[in-house]
Design a protein around this nucleic acid. Structure first.
Lengths: 341, 341
DNA sequence: CTGAAAGCGCTTACAG
DNA sequence: CTGAAAGCGCTTACAG
């Protein structure tokens, strides 16, 4: 018979307090118009008096939206993602939505589990930074069950969903052209995660810029962040070392700077660097980094807005793509202000 | 009569598939022992075949734990908090818990609303970085309703709850003593947010170290991050400027470095700096920062574990306090390696 | 404008 | 070891 003492006040408490049925209270809560103004204010007063708060679990069980969005990303400790996450949470909250966070920490298996958990938690929609092709079947299934999905920063193919991306190729071209403008002919492109289309596009932009200038591309793609240092240093010590670096993300830029500094390669005088991904402390580094800035917050905001829109329209079929601009922030590591200090 | 087509499979689907009652399925799901092994495996097979996932909303409504913890903090974009948040999420996930995030962005009003929303979302417990005394009544009420609460990084009085803090005073003493060891006699302590007990303890440590050395303390406490720069520069240009700075958090350290650099005050030669709060890029700054390191991840992990413990024990009455050690990371800004580059 | 009934998907407490 | 009944707190669809 499942009775147990309840600490919280329920809709029936409010109804009793007003001497009406629960239905009337429910109508007032949901802003249904067919309630007399006088009744409504009486109910509102009782709600306030009893400090009543509707139980979301019950509403969800009745088929209401959970007003909760699931945010799936690799790592909350990375600046870029945390800025993005913050924007998502804020925009969601402004619209009465709550954010459930799932950081899969590069663990390819756990990501699939996270999706299963999301489903059981009655998430209303998903914003994700995808990193695993294996998710596609499950995501498709969730989508056809009516869950809107928006991908941020990168994409997986085979899934129709909203996309909020950044001008990766254009940004890379700007970066590489800038180095070429400084007179560099031997520019090495280095980084990892090249299986992601975001990074892929950056490499493509690099290639394009090099070829357009009649230069020979050289790639140094490693498999993990920790591998940047040894491979890069080996390359720098080998014959015919590059005079400039295009680094594919913020971690690579930092690793490059750190390694070069530790072995006393002067930046930018011996090796210039332009990186993809700007970050707050870039101007304060020993060599202030010239970098392509991606609008992290706008990315999160835009994705959330897109999700909220399809949630309210009920038409998640409109899987739009938005591409946000990048821009080159010029500081010292490219050689522009080589002796500025 | 509230019927509506369901896309998802429910417990009755599984029961029908096996030709048993829903009770049996429920028992199997919950690992109840009084089910024959043969029956259990039959049910498990059906669950897998139908890809069944129990609906959390229904379980919650029946009084089960939501297996969701609420994380309330000021800002997810700040490195310290995002590292902490990542640790909370990871530790929670390892234990089958989901994390709902509430970043109140310093908006004093919204924080109270967040708590109300948490309550309606059937959160099982709360981890929070408190920043508002006004929350106390509501938090107390939630606590007496059985919700365990753990405060991280700082504290508000009048609330019995778990606490996971850091050796603020000891850290500050180390920092200031280090500067004194370098021969400084005029050390300015600067920052903001002094109303938080964490910062308060740092100031206390500063005072203690100065007094123990027979030196005159001088405080420059401002009201917002943006006010650090103008006030600090004004003070540096005034007569009898300090020869060293103790900065009360990472943002202050960065602002100080930035301002001093922009007006060509050599660090550490004219002004030395030791800051509270280390961060990843500190060693790569133009002047690598000497700083007191707080274990951000451990803070988050420890708080989450404490919450999970009281959740499983059911005895949230044991409101323990854990204090994690800080240590001084010596780099250049204090004067230790003044000409290292 | 208001209410009585039914049911969302699950579990508790009772029988057998 | 298994099941029929009741009910968690809400809302949908129907009457009035």
């Amino acid at each position: 018979m499942g009775r147990r003492p309840r600490a919280t006040t329920t809709i029936s408490d409010v109804a009793r307090e007003c001497g009406v049925s629960t239905m009337t209270v429910s109508r007032v809560i949901n802003g249904n118009k067919s309630v007399s103004a006088e009744m409504a204010s009486r109910v509102h007063a009782a709600i306030a008096r009893l400090n009543y708060q509707p139980n979301e679990a019950a509403r969800i069980l009745r088929g209401q939206s959970s007003r909760t969005i699931g945010l799936l990303l690799p790592n909350l400790a990375d600046t870029f993602f945390s800025q993005c996450a913050h924007a998502v949470q804020q925009r969601a909250a402004q619209n009465g939505y709550t954010t459930m966070i799932f950081a899969c920490e590069g663990d390819r298996e756990s990501e699939a589990e996270e999706l299963t958990i999301m489903r059981s938690r009655n998430i209303a929609g998903i914003v994700l930074v995808p990193s695993n092709r294996k998710l596609v079947p499950q995501l498709r299934q969730m989508r056809s069950a009516g869950l809107p999905i928006v991908m941020v920063d990168r994409t997986i193919s085979g899934l129709e969903a909203g996309q909020v991306l950044v001008e990766n190729e254009e940004g890379a071209i700007m970066a590489v052209n800038h180095l070429i403008g400084h007179g560099h002919r031997h520019i090495l492109c280095t980084g990892y995660d090249s299986e992601y289309d975001s990074v892929g596009k950056r490499i493509q932009g690099y290639r394009r810029a090099m070829e357009d200038a009649g230069l020979e591309p050289e790639l140094l793609i490693v498999d993990r962040p920790e591998a940047v240092r040894p491979h890069l240093l080996a390359r720098m010590h080998a014959p015919n070392a590059p005079t400039a670096l295009f680094t594919l993300n913020n971690v690579t830029s930092i690793e490059a700077l750190r390694s070069l500094q530790s072995e006393a390669f002067p930046v930018p005088d011996q090796v210039a660097i332009v990186g993809f991904d700007d970050f707050e402390l870039a101007p304060l580094l020993a060599v202030p980094l010239t970098a392509v800035r991606q609008p992290a917050s706008e990315l999160g905001e835009c994705a959330t807005q897109m999700l909220l829109d399809s949630l309210s329209e009920g038409s998640h079929s409109s899987s739009k793509t938005v591409i946000l601009p990048t821009r080159l922030i010029i500081r010292n590591s490219c050689g522009c202000i080589s002796h500025g200090r």
